[in-house]
Amino acid sequence: MSVSYAVKSLSQGARELIAFRIGDQEFCVNIMSVREIRGWTQATPMPHAPAYVRGVINLRGAVLPIIDMSARLGMKETEPTQRHVIIVAQVKSKVVGLLVEAVSDILTITDDNIQPVPEVSSDLEKQYARGILAIDKRMICLIELEALFPEKAHDKESEAA
């Protein structure tokens, strides 16, 4: 994709998304919230943390919590390997690391490409899913990180745990 194309389409209300894989599913988030992508490193576990918090790692001097996206989205806990990656993302005022299997694509889309989320019974999916993209016969679910980690989320979760 040429730069001029990207600029043109962005100016027409298009946005760029970063797609990643968890198990056999694909998800994507707005690329503007992504700071960097790095390989998996062993995290220091946190006491009294919800199951989806893998622990904390050192990101150039800052303490970065690592969220197991698979567990956070209600799927099974990840068993991280060297090939797993951490997407460092800004969620409101905080920076978190999202543990995913792999980054699969960078998509440039317009709002027309986004289909509404079909009626599903699970609250969890309704909570984070903002739309569905059909690209090359793949189904990619657009998620909103702010909905996954509302400002007080950690407190509530750890209380519940």
Binding site: M46, H48, A49, A62, V63, K94, V95, V96, H154, S158
Partner: peptide, 9 residues
């Protein structure tokens, strides 16, 4: 800064 207060820590 990025997480939350952890009791005991």
């Amino acid at each position: 800064a990025n997480y939350t207060h952890v009791p005991g820590i």
